[in-house]
Design a protein around this nucleic acid. Structure first.
Length: 780
DNA sequence: CAGTGAGCGAGCTTCCGCTTGACTT
């Protein structure tokens, strides 16, 4: 008979725990929540004081029955889920679903997985904190109400299958508003002046920048004119110490940001790699908002630093989180064993591990000390001064191990280097002065990682949801990750050299962006709609203010259903009212004008399949009236900016783009985007081309490309059996037989060498297994 | 796969937070 059953949330944690606890303890995992509201139904009984209707989802039934039977056998069940709101709720659901006897059930929590911490937890058990559980129920029910009442409004008013929610809708709002700021941004020009001097030794050069920017070209020319006759003298040399402090150990959000900056990983990529490191026992838990390191980790970090760098490099630091609403159920993300420098794993895993390890070590290291020297240069007859700034690293401290990345994607701050030796009152000879026109920077578009940072600052979303949220807003086509081409911009460079002033005009590309989050028409329309009718829910402080209520519930000072009731009584009437508003035109619809040929009105709006233009009004009363014509917008067009001319062009599709091998080439836009059709075959048009303008030459090239690709797709054919073929696919080689596909086992080294018999064997063996489920294809 | 789409029709879509597999054409 098993004496003790301990239930934790994750299997990796269960494994390590079992080692510490020994024979008398069996440790199992619940794999997160085991019970939730139904997925397809509202599941909150409004009339019955917001009673939630919980079910065990199908994919959790097996684990629940296993837990149930083990719990029955155990003398004592220890609920060891996380200490936060969600963890408490998991324990409560377990107690309910497993029908645990309260006398035999104990609730324990620990902050680090060490023998002492666990034994201490076992000695000091408590009961399930019902208030904390209720705070979680309030959070859950609120999110359900918001999500399941708002989304259907969008289906009716904008487009089916859209969604809205407390977290995702604010994420979209941030991106939409940033894009509007960018569109409204007017850059201001000014001239930055940099001079190059020769020191009294007649050889050494010193670069210095003017202490102010000059507003206009005239001002800049005037200044250079004044420099012609001026003398330059060093009138001040000041040196001051500067300290740099290491960054705190990683949380989920900072790890995602840094991995994006330094390694170029997407947010979800980082999480997948971290998950593997965690499951291999190499790092601590990767979904955390805590910057705290356990005593054990602090101790081993200290030892490692003392041993490898010496005492001078060590500094004890305790970090505290500043994040709103942080729950700190876990430690910061750190290596399990700090001395473990080399790990086995893929190259990507190794790089992420190295990042985590270095950041952790650096966080317990001494400040870096720099000496910053500023040389001030007087210009005779003028108030302005030139300044040369140099930095010397006096003590590298933590920088020996780790330097935090920066986000600046605009002009790079130049690194301040070492300055040559100079003395006060040295007279300098001006070699050259250059005034370059510079422009103020527009606000940056969000990247995945910078959006996560902003959401975290606002206290919106949790470490476990950052990556999925970003996925959701892209899946709904509210935003897309994309590139924006920059525009050419002229700027002026005025140079004073050898007593002559010359002016030239140069061009640069400004405002180009790569892999940034850009709102789509759908995202903009949905956001504007929600902002108009539900500004309270979209408010950046909405989450923070409901969190306050949840805190009051957790502390026992508020009844959770009262908190929900107050919200619902305000929110639901607005939902009712908004649904009842009969809009003659769809949300976001715009009339562009009239078609000069037919005189019919031209509209642009979000259709069932995305943005469309419409020629002619719908006539619901008259069945025989001509139906309106529709055409999808193409990439780069927006319902906000499209003109009547551009709209009318779209109705010309599909069009004949040319002829090849005696057959017509047709260009158009279909269900899967822009395409050309030739000889009954469809070929997608790549992003850099456009179905309205694609030429015969470009089309022919696409056709030829497709043919060579098709030729490469086939690895091997069999003369005896034409229906059997070995092909190259997205996931590597596979076998195709009678229109069905089969995976080639890993034991086959060279798919090329497969004989017909071997291939047939693979097909037959696969056939015995239940047919692989085909992914549901969305129809209609 | 593909010249889609204005409304009699039938039913579907959706939230946020916990956690991992199953499975890939």
């Amino acid at each position: 008979m098993q004496k003790n059953l301990v239930i934790v949330e994750s299997p990796a944690k269960a494994k390590t725990l079992e080692k510490f606890l020994g024979k008398d303890f069996k440790v199992m995992s619940s794999y997160g929540h085991i019970r939730d509201l139904k997925t397809k139904e509202f599941s909150v009984d409004i009339a019955n004081n917001y009673k939630p209707e919980y079910v065990v989802p199908d994919d959790k039934k097996k684990i629940v029955s296993e837990l149930k039977s083990e719990a029955k056998k155990a003398e004592t069940v220890w609920l060891a889920s996380d200490e936060d709101r969600e963890g408490e709720a998991i324990s409560w659901h377990l107690a309910e679903v497993l029908k645990l006897n309260p006398e035999k059930t104990k609730r324990i929590v620990f902050h680090e997985i060490t023998k002492n911490a666990i034994l201490h937890a076992i000695e000091t058990p408590r009961h399930i904190d019902v208030n904390l559980v209720n705070a979680q129920q309030a959070r859950r029910v609120l999110d359900r109400i918001v999500g399941f009442e708002l989304s259907p409004i969008l289906w009716r008013k904008v487009k089916p299958a859209l969604s809205a929610g407390r977290v995702q809708s604010v994420a979209v709002r941030l991106i939409v508003e940033r894009e509007r700021e960018i569109n409204a941004f007017v850059s201001e020009a000014s001239f930055r002046v940099i001079a190059e001097f020769v020191l009294p030794d007649g050889a050494t050069l010193l670069k210095a920048e003017l202490n102010k920017r000059l507003k206009t070209k005239e001002e800049a020319t005037q200044f250079l004119e004044a420099c012609k006759k001026a003398t330059f003298t060093i009138d001040d040399i000041s040196t001051k110490p500067v300290k740099k402090t290491p960054a705190a150990p990683f949380t989920t959000s900072t790890l995602q940001q840094e991995a994006a900056r330094k390694l170029g990983y997407s947010v979800s990529q980082t999480m997948m790699l971290a998950q593997r490191l965690y499951e291999s026992g190499l790092i601590t838990y990767m979904r955390t908002d805590s910057v705290n390191l356990s005593d054990l980790a602090l101790g081993t970090a200290k030892e490692a630093i003392l041993e490898n760098y010496g005492e001078k490099y060590y500094k004890f630091r305790k970090y505290s989180t500043k994040t709103k609403g942080a729950q700190e159920a876990h430690e910061a993300i750190r290596p399990t064993y700090i001395n473990n420098e080399d790990i086995t794993g893929t190259a990507q895993e190794k790089r992420l591990y190295e990042l985590i390890r270095k950041r952790t070590i650096a966080s317990q290291m001494a400040d870096a000390e720099l000496e910053r020297t500023t040389i001030s240069i007087d210009i005779s007859g003028l108030k302005e001064k030139f300044a040369a700034v140099g930095e010397v690293l006096v003590f590298d401290g933590f920088l020996q191990v780790y330097r935090e990345g920066t986000d600046d994607d605009g002009e790079k701050e130049q690194e301040n280097g070492l300055l040559p030796p100079v003395s006060l009152n040295d007279a300098l000879k001006l070699q050259e002065t250059v005034a370059t026109e510079r422009f103020t920077q527009r606000p940056p578009r969000y990247t995945e990682a910078s959006l996560v940072r902003r959401l975290e600052e606002l206290g919106i979303g949790r470490p476990s949801t950052y990556a999925p949220t970003i996925q959701t807003i892209q899946n709904r086509e509210y935003v897309e990750k994309g590139d924006k081409e920059g525009v050419g911009r002229e700027y002026t460079v005025i140079t004073l050299s050898e007593g002559k002033i010359t002016e030239i005009s140069k061009t640069e590309i400004a405002g180009a962006d790569r892999n940034k989050l850009i709102p789509t028409d759908i995202g903009i329309v949905v956001n504007d709609f929600l902002m108009e009718y539900f500004p309270d829910v979209l408010d950046y402080n909405f989450t923070a203010s409901v969190e306050k209520e949840f805190d009051a519930v957790a502390e026992g000072g508020m009844i959770w259903t009262d908190a929900i009731g107050r919200f619902y009584n305000v929110f639901h009437p607005i939902v009712e009212k908004t649904s009842a508003v009969r809009t003659e035109h769809k949300v976001g619809e715009r009339e562009l004008g009239a078609d000069p040929v037919s005189g019919k009105p031209v509209f642009v709006k979000i259709g069932r399949f995305g943005p469309v233009v419409q020629l002619g009004a719908a006539n619901p009363d008259d069945k025989n009236a001509p139906k309106p014509q529709f055409a999808s917008l193409i990439k780069g067009q927006s319902i906000e900016t499209i003109t009547l001319e551009e709209a009318l062009k779209l109705f010309e599709l599909p069009r004949t783009a040319g002829e090849f091998e005696g057959k017509e080439i047709v260009a158009g836009i279909g269900r899967f985007g822009p395409f050309i059709r030739h000889d009954g075959k469809f070929i997608p048009i790549p992003k850099n081309l456009n179905p309205l303008t694609i030429s015969e030459e470009e089309s022919v090239e696409l056709i030829k490309d497709k043919r060579t690709k098709e030729a490469q797709r086939s690895i091997k054919k069999f003369e005896e059996e034409p229906e059997m073929e070995i092909l190259n696919g997205r996931f590597g080689p596979y076998i195709s037989y009678k229109k069905k596909n089969y995976k080639i086992p890993k034991t086959v080294k060279e798919p090329k060498e497969l004989t017909l018999e071997e291939a047939m064997k693979i097909v037959n063996e696969a056939g015995e297994k239940p047919a692989t489920k085909k992914r549901a294809v969305k129809k209609k």
